[in-house]
């Protein structure tokens, strides 16, 4: 039987979140028909963006005032109501998807496959457990709807250029009286949070002082990146404790991680092993970080930062 896949779109009413395009890639790996469900209020633009994703057949739009904010209690019944015609329901493994999709799974009476990182068949997946320290195979039992979340770092965004039709579907439920959206306070608008940043630049003790770390902050701002540090840099007092990446610091999985003057001790590497692309800049060609970096550059970190600043202008 051919799979029929429904993807729950994530958006902010204006723009489709890139995680949706990643779900489409995951759906392509599963094979079969792929529709996108856009829930919200005043979401015409979002629906058009979803329709442009390559591989999407139909965009289903449910536009209702009570769906204006992503409250799982309001969205989940809509998804569950739409899900009847589908073999698969997928959402992104972002805070949006991780909040909503399990609620949908429960309404459908099925267990959920979290953080799909690879597809091995229509009902067979690979996913990480123990913070990525082990990978398991998960088989969804026959005759049940596959409900899953798609791990962002494992999938590329589907290309645009498609032209799916957009269909409207009326809301099937009323607003939940027990949940109310109050506000969203975006990050302080400056540097993205280390843990959720798509790009992270990180520095080691080789910076030599807190002042020299300013150069790294400047590069981070140019790249829109979060800033991390090795324990040695924290211990030396160059940066505060909450910037530490690694075993006793933060475990992060940005799409791009650029390590400047970090040797790559296991303790540090444990914190970045799920990163998409790792770049290492270090003057010691024998530094262990080069053994796992996707792109390595042996050289003086200050020179490289200065040159990057100029090139990125």
């Amino acid at each position: 039987m051919m799979s029929k896949i429904l993807i729950i779109a994530e958006h902010d009413s204006n723009t489709l979140n890139p995680s949706t395009a990643k779900c489409v890639s995951c759906a392509a790996a599963i094979g079969g028909d792929c529709d996108v469900l856009v829930l919200g209020s005043g979401i015409g633009d979002v629906s058009r963006q979803a329709a442009a994703l390559e591989g999407v057949s139909i965009v289903i739009e449910t536009d209702a005032a009570h769906l204006a904010h992503p409250l799982a209690a309001n969205l989940a019944p809509e998804v569950a109501a739409a899900a009847g015609a589908y073999s698969h329901v997928l959402g992104p493994s972002t805070t949006f998807g991780r909040d909503l999709v399990p609620r949908v799974a429960a309404l459908l009476g099925v267990n959920q496959v979290s953080d799909i990182m690879a597809v091995e068949g229509p009902t067979t997946f690979r996913r990480p457990i123990y913070a990525g320290n082990a990978i398991v195979k998960v088989d969804v039992p026959a005759e049940t709807t596959v409900v899953g979340t798609v791990r962002a770092a494992s999938w590329k965004e589907a290309a645009t250029g498609g032209s799916a039709s957009i269909e409207s579907r009326p809301a099937s439920s009323e607003a939940a009286s027990h949940s109310r959206y109050v506000s969203l306070e975006a990050g302080d608008g400056e540097r993205p949070d280390l843990q959720s940043a798509k790009v992270v630049v990180s520095g080691g003790r080789a910076f030599g002082s807190a002042e020299n770390f300013e150069k790294l902050y400047a590069l981070a701002d140019k790249l829109g990146a979060g800033v991390g540090a090795s324990r040695a840099a924290v211990d030396a007092g160059y940066v505060p404790n909450d910037m530490q990446v690694g075993q006793t610091g933060k475990i992060i999985a940005p799409e791009l991680y650029v390590a400047f003057g970090i040797s790559g001790a296991i303790q540090h590497v444990t914190g970045i092993k799920d990163a998409g692309t790792i770049v290492a800049v270090n003057k010691d060609a024998d530094a262990p970080i080069f053994e796992l970096a996707d792109i390595g550059l042996v050289g003086d970190l200050f020179t490289v930062i200065d040159e990057m600043m100029a090139l990125l202008d």
Partner: peptide, 17 residues
């Protein structure tokens, strides 16, 4: 590889603060 790696296999942990 080195002593730092050895410490990793000792799973040693101290609240650094």
């Amino acid at each position: 590889r080195d002593r730092l790696a050895s410490v990793y296999f000792a799973a040693t942990a101290h609240d650094e603060d």
